[in-house]
Computed example of a mutant assay.
Amino acid sequence: MRTLVLNAGYEPLAVVSFKRAIVLVMNEKATVVEHVVGDPVWGTSGSYDRPAVIILTRYVRVPGGRHVPVTRRGVLRRDGHRCAYCGKAASTIDHVQPRSRGGKDTWENLVACCLRCNNVKGDRTPQEMSWSLRLTPAPPRGAQWTVRGTERADPRWEPYLALAA
């Protein structure tokens, strides 16, 4: 069971285990906004409802601009596991501007690619191959990218994640 943690300003921060959420609530660092009905946690001093959403009592300043790091898994997820050149199922990533020609590992230069297209393209650019990209690579946006762990979001979290988008 996972719990959504909201900042004091209702900004989604992270998804934690229900055990961590209960510790935050018991230490009065958070309060329960919504809980799971009918599945309590038993402790030595009584039973507690499992929190589904908690809000921190004090505002936590998040350093930086919530930059989403570039990962292979992230690129595949952003592109829907579809090849940027032919549209088939993608299992690899490709540098639009090849690394051998100064291409960097950035969201704007990486796309999901099937193995066949990746091998055929090699270290050439799409223009040299007379290929076109089916999408324009860009950094991902939205609450599911900035809040760690919301890939498998609980339906109870939807109103809270919508506030951040």
Rank of each mutant, 00 (worst) to 15 (best):
1 M>G: 02
2 R>S: 14
4 L>I: 03
5 V>C: 05
6 L>G: 11
13 L>S: 03
14 A>D: 13
17 S>T: 15
17 S>C: 04
19 K>P: 00
21 A>L: 05
21 A>I: 06
26 M>K: 15
26 M>Q: 15
28 E>G: 00
28 E>D: 11
35 H>R: 13
36 V>S: 02
39 D>Y: 06
41 V>I: 12
44 T>P: 01
45 S>W: 10
48 Y>V: 13
48 Y>N: 05
49 D>A: 14
50 R>S: 13
51 P>Y: 09
51 P>G: 04
51 P>L: 10
54 I>P: 02
55 I>K: 15
62 V>Q: 12
65 G>D: 13
66 R>F: 01
66 R>P: 00
70 V>D: 04
72 R>T: 14
75 V>F: 09
77 R>W: 03
78 R>Q: 09
81 H>L: 09
81 H>A: 09
83 C>P: 03
84 A>G: 13
84 A>I: 08
87 G>K: 04
88 K>Y: 12
90 A>L: 10
91 S>F: 03
91 S>W: 11
91 S>K: 11
96 V>M: 07
97 Q>H: 13
102 G>V: 02
102 G>D: 11
102 G>K: 09
103 G>V: 07
105 D>P: 00
108 E>F: 04
109 N>F: 06
110 L>E: 07
111 V>T: 03
112 A>K: 03
113 C>L: 04
114 C>N: 02
114 C>P: 00
115 L>N: 09
115 L>V: 12
117 C>T: 01
118 N>H: 13
119 N>V: 11
119 N>L: 14
119 N>Y: 12
120 V>N: 04
121 K>I: 08
122 G>H: 10
123 D>S: 11
123 D>G: 05
124 R>S: 15
125 T>P: 10
125 T>Y: 07
125 T>A: 05
126 P>G: 09
129 M>P: 01
130 S>H: 15
130 S>V: 01
130 S>K: 15
130 S>W: 09
134 R>G: 10
136 T>I: 14
137 P>C: 09
140 P>E: 05
141 R>K: 10
141 R>S: 14
141 R>D: 05
141 R>Y: 05
145 W>I: 08
148 R>T: 10
149 G>C: 06
152 R>G: 07
154 D>I: 01
154 D>V: 02
155 P>Y: 13
156 R>Y: 03
156 R>P: 00
158 E>F: 03
160 Y>D: 08
162 A>P: 00
163 L>M: 13
164 A>P: 01
164 A>M: 08
165 A>V: 07
